[in-house]
Design a protein around this nucleic acid. Structure first.
Length: 371
DNA sequence: AGCGTGACGGTTGAC
DNA sequence: TCGTCAACCGTCACG
């Protein structure tokens, strides 16, 4: 299983094609940027392509979240039982009604809004397939009672609640799938950085990173001349090498990390730190959230984490503060608006998920003081 | 040199 | 259960 299968980019960094970078790395990118470090330097230091750095920072600026968008899945269905029911009613009331008229009525009656109203073709399909013969009213379809507006439960979430980040990380918490991983720890994620966080905090975090990197030899400091070892190496490193930072880091990530790494079965033992590094190693599995990466912590999908706390925040008090809740929060941070706009809607992000998972999130405290 | 952007190949997950 | 589809991902290369 596990082997990591990652690929190495031109900068020597490890990445998994198709999968998001570990939250920790994402977080780092944002932190470094907030410290005034240029994107190109961030790219080199973290060994992440500049395009990616640019993208993550742009997203962060736009949404306030460092979390990746929701991957996979389908848009929420608009043809909920309730909608079908209304369509049926309209059809029954006026057998000659056109699909476009039904569509207009759904909007007019408030059954649907412009965002979730079925297309004319969908309505036609419903008429043809589900309603077919009006004669059978009772239909089974209905279902519901509720309105369509919020389509079903899920639907409510816009597809993208993403921003919330369903991902493994946090939200996932939501329980969504991720959790399943089980073991995985998920870290929590809080990934979002509050924009406000004081840099000071950040710094520390950063330092953390740095530290460990430095130790490992990786980053060389400012000059950057030296970059961290390749991720590839990291793994090794991590485990073994990082003790030092461990503490700090550990705290942070440790857990998370571990999780990441092992996620599935987190061995309790591992030292945390290491994990930290490992990160990139994308852990083993495929599991995404899993990247062990440094950030793993952040990432981790797991719920547990959340509960536990955030890695980052913990001890250090780093700026990051990622409180557990954050995950969601991240999303929250930003304005829904955007989401709405962009992503599709955002309205309810997380819908349940987020909420569930993160209880605190909303409230999200902010970090600023994390500690 | 630095950065934005889009193509590309890839993964994911709802349907 | 499996294939499809559409979303996202990060890298790379170009301007």
């Amino acid at each position: 299983m596990e082997q990591t299968y990652g690929e190495v980019n031109q900068l020597g960094g490890v990445f998994v094609n198709g999968r998001p970078l570990p939250n920790a790395i994402r977080l780092r990118i944002v932190e470094l940027a907030q410290l005034g470090i240029r994107p190109c330097d961030i790219s080199r230091q973290l060994r992440v392509s500049h395009g990616c750095v640019s993208k993550i920072l742009a997203r962060y600026n736009e949404t306030g979240s460092i979390l990746p968008g929701a991957i996979g899945g389908s848009k929420p269905r608009v043809t909920t039982p309730n909608v079908v029911k209304h369509i049926r009613d309209y059809k029954q009331g006026d057998p000659g009604i056109f699909a476009w008229e039904i569509r207009d009525r759904l909007l007019a009656d408030g059954v649907c809004d412009k965002y979730n109203v079925p297309s004319v073709s969908s309505i036609s399909r419903i008429l043809r397939n589900k309603i077919g013969n009006l004669s059978q009213p009772g239909g089974s379809y209905d279902g519901g009672s509720s309105s369509c507006k919020q389509p079903a439960p899920q639907p409510a979430l816009p597809y993208n609640h993403i921003y919330q980040y369903p991902y493994p990380s946090a939200v996932t918490a939501a329980g969504t799938k991720m959790s399943s991983h089980t073991g995985a720890p998920v870290a929590a994620a809080h990934v979002s950085l509050p924009r406000s966080w004081p840099s000071a905090h950040s710094v520390s975090n950063i330092l953390g990173i740095r530290t460990f990197m430095e130790q490992s030899g990786a980053l060389a400091g400012a000059d950057g001349s030296t970059y961290p070892p390749k991720l590839e190496d990291w793994p090794g490193v991590n485990r073994t090498s990082f003790p030092a930072s461990a503490q700090g880091i550990n705290a942070l990530d440790k857990s998370a990390v571990e999780a990441d790494i092992k996620y599935p079965q987190p061995p309790p033992g591992l030292s945390a730190v290491s994990t930290f590094l490992s990160p990139c190693a994308y852990p083993s599995s495929n599991q995404p959230g899993v990247y062990g990466g440094p950030g793993g912590s952040y990432l981790s999908p797991a719920h547990h984490w959340q509960a536990q706390g955030n890695p980052l925040a913990h001890h250090h008090g780093p700026g990051v503060a990622v409180h557990g809740g954050e995950l969601a929060s991240s999303a929250s941070f930003k304005h829904p608006a955007r989401e709405a706009g962009d992503r599709k809607q955002a309205t309810s992000p997380g819908g349940k998920a987020a909420a569930d998972s993160l209880p605190g999130i909303h409230g999200l405290p902010v970090p600023a003081s994390s500690s």
